[in-house]
Design a protein around this nucleic acid. Structure first.
Length: 351
DNA sequence: GATCCGTGGAT
DNA sequence: TATCCAAGGAT
């Protein structure tokens, strides 16, 4: 009976996916896969890391730029750190980019450039956790692993009308998802559940009327689907303040810093500045007649709001400062900056 | 288990 | 404007 239900559900989902799979630059669609096209594990891995907590729309252009610039994992492994961090700038969660490079170098050096295919081996690699290990194993190698991301959590919570709040209900949701994972076409199936969650079984206003699982869905029968999955309340975000300092030489060169590898915006390029706190201390990188710009930069991170004041001064010739970078005009790209630093740059340029 | 870690779009 | 939240991982 359970097998029958499982087969009905997974077949309904695969059938829906065959007809409605979204096109994505990294995806080997059901028709291509059926025709024998084998996914490139490098592209599957890169896309899955980019997609961690990030929307498909935001990832698209980044994925294209990365794969044009670094078509293979060996090419990526050989890239200088600052080029990769610059290409990742704006996408957020910069630890992903640092771990991406670590992982590329491990696979290149220790696995001869060949991605491992098992969940347990993938899980040991930098930046690959339970979700991504299962996703790569299933999507790139068509192994019957169960992916559990936000989409699958939502689909399972509704399908079985589970009211226990996340994250405590995660093991139960994982059990439900694992029960449904078929041994045939597990890669397509993993993408089918996630596509369903992303397009039909959405967080708000799910379109149950056209859902391939509308009949067996227990939440829909109970009318509870808009309230699922339940989640524990989140903490409010405090507001912090800070100062940043933009100094430019008459030839256009700029004073920048490479942020330490750990912590917020780790490894990224930025403007020197104060700590970000309730009452920041003005801390210019060198003594000068600093002028504060009109306006301010407002930015919201994962766990706090930030309001920055921007100061500017001429950068003397031959100025050299510990841990700071004098970047020539031709070498500076605003797109290499994380978004909050690019906002400061834009305010300064439009002064 | 709780906290930290970005960003932009939708509502 | 405020909140949610998106194909999560590391510590």
């Amino acid at each position: 009976m359970r097998d029958t239900l499982k087969n009905d559900l997974s077949c309904a989902l695969l059938d829906w996916y065959d007809r409605h799979a979204r096109k994505m630059p990294w995806r080997v669609g059901p028709a291509d896969r059926a025709a024998g096209v084998i996914p490139d594990p490098y592209r599957v891995w890169l896309s899955e890391v980019m997609l961690q907590q990030t929307t498909v729309a935001a990832v698209r252009d980044y994925f294209t730029r990365f794969t044009v610039r670094w078509p293979t994992i060996q090419a990526l492994a050989a890239a200088p750190d600052d080029q990769v961090m610059g290409e990742w700038a704006g996408l957020g969660y910069y630890a992903r980019a640092r771990n991406l490079l670590k992982c590329a170098r491990v696979v290149t050096d220790q696995y001869d450039g060949v991605f491992p295919d098992t969940y347990d081996t993938l899980l040991k690699l930098p930046g690959i956790g339970p979700y991504t290990a299962a996703a790569i194993s299933a999507i790139a190698f068509d192994r019957p692993e169960t992916v559990l991301d936000g989409n699958v959590e939502r689909v399972m919570a509704r399908l079985y009308d589970i009211h226990d709040p996340l994250p405590g209900s995660k093991p139960l949701l994982n059990d439900k998802a694992a029960e449904l994972t078929p041994t045939v076409r597990p890669g397509d199936y993993a993408q089918a559940v996630m596509d369903l969650g992303a397009t039909i079984c959405t967080p708000k206003s799910p379109t149950c009327g056209i859902c391939p699982l509308r009949d067996p869905c227990q939440a829909r029968a109970a009318g509870t689907q808009p309230d699922l999955p339940r989640k524990l309340p989140k903490k409010p975000k405090p507001t912090r303040f800070g100062h940043v300092y933009i100094a430019q030489r008459t030839d256009g060169a700029l004073l920048l810093e490479r942020r330490p590898d750990r912590g917020l915006l780790g490894g990224m390029l930025g403007w020197p500045g104060s700590d970000w706190s309730e009452v920041p201390v003005e801390s210019p990188p060198f003594a000068a007649d600093w002028q504060v710009l009109a306006g301010e930069v407002r930015h919201t991170f994962t766990h706090f709001h930030l309001i920055l004041r921007i100061w500017t001064a001429p950068l003397p010739v031959d100025m050299a400062l510990d841990d700071l970078i004098v970047m020539e005009k031709h070498a500076f790209r605003p797109s290499d900056l994380p978004t909050v630093m690019r906002k400061a740059h834009d305010l300064w340029r439009n002064r």
